[in-house]
Nucleic acid binder design. Structure first.
Length: 422
RNA sequence: GUGAGCGUAGCUCAGCUGGUGGUAGCACCGGGUUGUGGCCUCGGCGGUCGUGGGUUCAAGUCCCAUCGCUCACCCCA
């Protein structure tokens, strides 16, 4: 074996690209229905951007970022997620104007240096959606409903789990309450939870150990510790989902891996992907823009993992239906080949998807290629046809073929052929 | 970072307790059809058995190392 792709980096081969295009096309369609505009942001950013937004003590920043010095010695990082860059751009380009609400989405690759496994790669792709400038709970519901609709229209089933993570006013007191609860029974907990109880106490709640979960059944719930404002906000968000008929369940132990989340947090979960069940996740991040030096503007967003969507869909339909050619030109004979080469260009200029064989293969072989390319029609132009100024047009579905006069006025002739086949 | 499983043809895989690498399937090329695809049929191409050591008369098979892949933990999309 010669050079292979990096660990955790995958080629997306032509057979699979159809699914990708379907998913991205559907996403763009739906995002636009909700008034979102696309923004394209760089893949490399200053390392500091991610450290300040995602949080210094998160796993992503501590051990998963592709960070290196560029030729001038500046520390730069390949983005591990999309929100930070979008917000940076929002601030840098002054996309905020008084009273405006920006709806933005971006689609592209993200990079995290983790051990790859099913549904987890080092380069993966996300659709990242952000709304900046509103803290209305109805917006939370609208954003979740949009994510929900996207999955529906793609043809996937997932459950929506929501929670509220509180705000700087109420989260600290909950954290304390939880921490003291955990400390009381620390002797009964797994090693991971012992560690987490200091580093990130909220995380103990989604521990996978049954034993730990038994201990946590009576743990304090964040929802009961929300301040008045957060509590009302959460209630309103749920009401919004009810109004839109989007099913959900409240999961009080759901936590997010990034530090910047506040209030509404949500995940779209499937059980069909092995250990990596989250196909989309997001939430509100009200303090983030200000923290990055922008105005005090609230925000909410989510990201969906395209590879995970592709995997789920791929299980259903092995390969997306390939877009075949309109026409394949078969040219037995050299003189015919040259003339055909010209005709082909004329047809393509008129918008016909057409191909031919340049290898001088047998007619039978060329027919096989036409079939493999799923060409709807085959145009046969051999030396015989050339001599009698005709071409043979064969319908590959019915197998029927007709002889058509070949005019030397290529443009009119090609237009006539196009009429017949499209 | 931790643990487990697996590396045989381009792909998917047989290969038993060590005894000559499979008429295997798919794909590819050609014939059956002197210029007509799909289906069928016949033939062909294709392999340092991941790599390096070791045990043995003999290693794809057993042992060790190494590299790679996969899955799981952690964490996450």
């Amino acid at each position: 074996m010669s050079i292979k792709a990096l660990k955790g980096f995958k080629d997306i081969l032509p057979d699979e690209v159809g699914l990708w295009q379907m998913i991205e096309g559907k996403a763009r369609d739906i995002f636009q229905r909700y008034g979102f505009e696309e923004i394209k942001v760089p893949i490399l950013e200053k390392t500091e951007l991610f450290v300040r937004t995602i949080g210094e003590s998160t796993d992503i920043v501590e051990k998963e970022m592709y960070t290196f010095a560029d030729r001038n010695g500046a520390s730069i990082t390949m983005r591990p997620e999309g929100t930070a860059s979008v917000i940076r751009s929002y601030i840098e380009n002054g996309l905020y104007v008084r009273g405006s609400v920006q709806r933005l989405y971006t689609i592209g690759p993200m990079f995290r240096h983790e051990r790859p496994q099913k549904g987890r790669l080092r380069q993966f792709h996300q659709m990242s959606v952000e709304v900046l400038g509103s803290e209305q709970a109805m917006l939370d519901a609208e954003v979740m409903a949009m994510a929900w609709l996207l999955l529906q229209e793609i043809g996937l089933k997932a459950s929506l789990e929501i929670n509220s993570l509180g705000c700087p006013a109420c989260r600290p007191s909950y954290k304390e309450a939880l921490q003291s609860f955990v400390k009381e029974r620390i002797a009964y907990l797994c090693e991971d939870c012992k560690r987490r109880s200091d580093a990130n106490p909220l995380r103990v709640l989604d521990c996978k150990s049954d034993n730990c979960q038994d201990q946590y059944t009576s743990a304090p719930s964040i929802i009961e510790h929300l301040c008045e404002d957060c509590s009302q906000h959460f209630a309103a968000a749920k009401q919004g989902l009810d109004l839109l008929g989007v099913p959900y369940s409240v999961n009080p132990s759901m936590v997010r891996g990034l530090d910047y989340y506040t209030r509404t947090a949500f995940e779209l979960i499937t059980t069909e992907l092995g250990a990596q069940g989250a196909i989309g996740a997001g939430g509100r991040y009200d303090g983030l823009v200000k923290q990055l030096g922008g105005p005090d503007v609230p925000g909410i967003g989510f990201a969906m993992g395209i590879e995970r969507l592709v995997m789920l869909l791929g299980q259903k339909e092995k390969r997306a239906s390939k877009t075949g050619l309109d026409l394949f030109l078969v040219t037995p004979g050299e003189a015919a080949y040259e003339k055909g080469f010209q005709l082909l260009q004329t047809l393509r200029i008129l918008g016909v998807r057409a191909m031919t064989d340049h290898e001088g293969r047998s007619m039978k072989n060329q027919m096989k290629q036409a079939n493999k390319q799923q060409a709807r029609f085959v145009l046969i132009l051999g030396d015989n046809e050339l001599e009698s100024r005709v071409v043979v047009l064969k319908d590959m579905l019915s197998g029927e073929q007709e002889t058509v006069a070949l005019s030397m006025d290529f443009e009119n002739w090609a237009a006539a052929i196009k009429e017949k086949i499209i």
